[in-house]
């Protein structure tokens, strides 16, 4: 079974938020909410500056605290891809998973259940890229099977310096940022 992950080149990303709006239309994300977002970190002092721009979302962790804390099994790991999903009609809206996520990737959908990035499972299970990856004008995102050594994501991770977000949380995130 594949293990889906994402590799994002922060050198190429311009932070245009196309990924954000593409996700919103693709997935009918309600107005005022987002499943993905842009984080910008600027280090240094004028004029000696460095900036990293990242497109962020649920990390579909290998060790997802949102799944383990869920009292009903609404938060679960699904195949193909070992992605973390929420089954709306099992969710009671206790919000424990929201508190448990170190990435603040989840939110309460106006309809009451907890919602978040699905890695566009409706697309990726058919071999398509997630909407955010497919729309990106800079081609800064790659999506694929981390367990397949021949995949683009695996190749990029082998050949480029990278980091993941909050590895100290121990959640084993599956989105990697090339630097």
């Amino acid at each position: 079974m594949p293990r889906f992950g994402m590799v994002i080149d922060t050198r190429k990303c311009v932070g245009c938020m196309d990924c954000v709006v593409a996700c919103q239309t693709e997935n009918d994300v309600p107005a005022g909410y987002c499943r993905d977002w842009i984080t910008t970190e600027v280090r240094g002092e004028f004029p000696a500056l460095k900036m990293e721009i990242r497109s962020e979302r649920c990390n579909h962790c290998d060790n997802p605290p949102c799944v383990s804390c869920c009292p009903t099994g609404a938060s679960h790991v699904a195949d193909p891809g070992r992605v973390v999903l929420v089954t709306a009609n099992k969710c009671i809206g206790c919000k424990a998973c929201i508190a448990a996520c170190p990435y603040d990737a989840r939110f309460v959908h106006p309809k009451g259940y907890v919602d978040k990035c699905t890695f566009c499972h409706h697309r990726t299970k058919d071999g398509l890229d997630p909407a955010c990856v497919a729309v990106c004008p800079t081609h800064c995102m790659a999506f694929g099977d981390l367990d397949d050594p021949a995949s683009t994501v695996s190749t990029l991770l082998r050949t480029r310096a990278h980091h993941a977000l909050l590895p100290e949380a121990g959640t084993k995130p599956r989105i990697f940022y090339l630097t």
Partner: peptide, 11 residues
């Protein structure tokens, strides 16, 4: 094949 955020947001 890839629009910018404004194009994507045309909806």
């Amino acid at each position: 094949g890839r629009l910018c955020p404004r194009g994507t947001g045309a909806v």
